[in-house]
Every structure is written in structure tokens, then in C-alpha cells.
Amino acid sequence: MQFRLFLVSMLILLAPQPLPLYAHGSVTAEDDLCIIRIGFYRAHFKIFQPGSSGQTEFCEDIPNTGESIFVMEYLHQELGNVPVEFRIIHDVTGLGRFARLEDVRQIDDIDAATVFYQAPAVESDVFTVLHEFEENGDYLGIVTARHPDRDEYYQAVFPFKVGFTGFGILPLFLILLIATQLAYWFTSGGYSRRKKNAKSKTFDHSIQAPVAGKIMQVLLLLPLAALLLGASAPADERWTSDGGSYQVSYNTELSPLVINDIHQWTVHVETTTGNPVTDARLLVSGGMPTHDHGLPTSPRVTENLGNGDYLVEGMRFHMMGDWEITIEIHQGERSETVVIPLTL
């Protein structure tokens, strides 16, 4: 009940704000991302005003005049191969938020209305332009991209305001929200419940503390043990693929494994019955699951050494911690994956 009330207040609060929720034109909000669609292309769209708003991201409307950086991070790889053109014009259509591509096509002298123009440019992954707005007002952004093969062009139009009215009633709303929440909490007996909870919590703690301490100790000792032992894989350690058909083991040129040194692995693949798999194609990748990034190199199998052994070149680790090496095993129609965890 309390949560629902909170949710409703949040929705009311967010509605008048220039957030992705309120995007329009060719820019839409998807999964909390501001997305621009140019024909079948998609890009993550954002505007920054580093001078006045630091690293705050805007989807379309921007609060101030002055230096503004428009960013399109390509979500469609083809976009990285075609010229992309970017233009900002005064909203001479007078349609504001309802301006569409058709309206823009009817403008006679687009150059006269243009305040910023970036000639077609091919950028591999991200497109950035900088424009310094001199005055508040309604503007239209127009992005043009060519079809990858044909001589066809796609366009996206997004209306936006420069210098929107600031936070408006936001502070008032916040006070109201907090007051409502507090009033609700007190009247529904939240205070007395909290008192009770606080008591029972301290009680729980006194029992769990020693156990938790033990667990913490063990957790702290694990990486220590790993560090002391080094990351050298015991030669006979094997990992089974997700489909259960293969067993994989490896040997490294560097033993123990250390960071910042490029080296080779020999990966051995066999069936669960111990027969070497000599005709597989292996794809090697890896990363740090807790860091959300991959290996600093792109290792590859460069030689089938026979007897189920494959030479993997270009292995390197650039951080200490927990890593996972993922090996995809392709054999005929079958493909399975094995994940080898290791700690450096």
C-alpha cells in the first residue's frame, strides 16, 4: 500500500520532467535508454552540457544555452560504415513537439533556418558534435544516414527545446511528497512498527554475529589461498562443457599465470570417455564477470596440434582478480561451451 502510494507520487513527479519518458519525434525511450531511429538504424542518443550541467545526460530538451554535445552511440553496426549528416534548425514549422519528417521536407530554405551543420562523416562507433546555442527556443534536429548499399537516405527528426523552464514545481512537489509520505507513515502506525523491528533486529544480530564472522573469515581466506597457490592450473583439472559432451583442460606457457604478459595456452579437448577431439573449431574469449569487461586481447586458436590439443595465442590478463575463460567448441553440427574460472 505504502509502496503503491510512493509509485503514484513518483509518476506524477516524473511526468513534467525532460526525461526519456517524455521523448518524441524519432527519439524514443527504450529500456531507460534514449534511442534515435534513422530508418532501420538505431543509436543511443544523448545530449550533454558539460559547462553548465557537468555529466548529466539529457534525452532531448536541454536546460541552458551554451556548449552542448550531441552523442549518438551506434547500436547498429552498419551505421559505422555509412556517412551520417547532422543538422540543427530553428523550428520554423511552428509545430514544436509535433514536428515530423514531412513537415521538415516542406521547408523551402532549410539553410536559412540552419544553426548547425555537420557534413556527412563516417564514424566507426560513436558520432559526436558540439554546438554552442546562443538563444533559447524550439529547435529541430535532423539526422541523415545513407543505406549501406543503395543510394538511399534515411532521415530522423527530433524536436527539442533549449532553455526549458528549469525545475518548475519540482521543489514544491518534493516537499509535498515527503509530507504525504510522513503523514501516511505516522497514521498507519509505521513509527511503532519500526520501534518493534529495531528491537528484534538487535536481538537477531547477537545470535548471527559469530556465524557471520566465521563466514567472513572463510571468505577472506579464500582469495589469500588462491594468491598463495598462484593461478597455475593443476595439470589434471578438467572442465565439462554445458552440453556434457566434452572435457577441456589447459596448460599455459606462463606458470603461474601473471598479469600484463602476453602468452600461449594449449587447450586439450576430449570426449567424456577420454577420446581426444581432433576436428573441433574453438573460439576463445574471456572476461571478468564482476567487472563487466573482457580480455585485453583477442586470443585465437592458431594451430591444431593433434591429439585433441589446440594452440591458443594472444592470451593476456590486465587485472588481478577472478577471470572466466569461455571456450566455444564447434564440431560438425554440435556446438558446446565450457567456462574455465581462474583467479590471478
Binding site: E73, D125, I262, G294, L295, P296, T297, S298, P299, R300, E313, G314, R316
Partner: peptide, 10 residues
């Protein structure tokens, strides 16, 4: 090796 097995990506 470094050049040959260089990584790319976002």
C-alpha cells in the same frame, strides 16, 4: 603478438 591479437569493440 600484441598487434596480431589486438582487441576491438565498444
Amino acid at each position: 603478438e600484441e598487434l596480431t591479437y589486438m582487441r576491438t569493440g565498444v
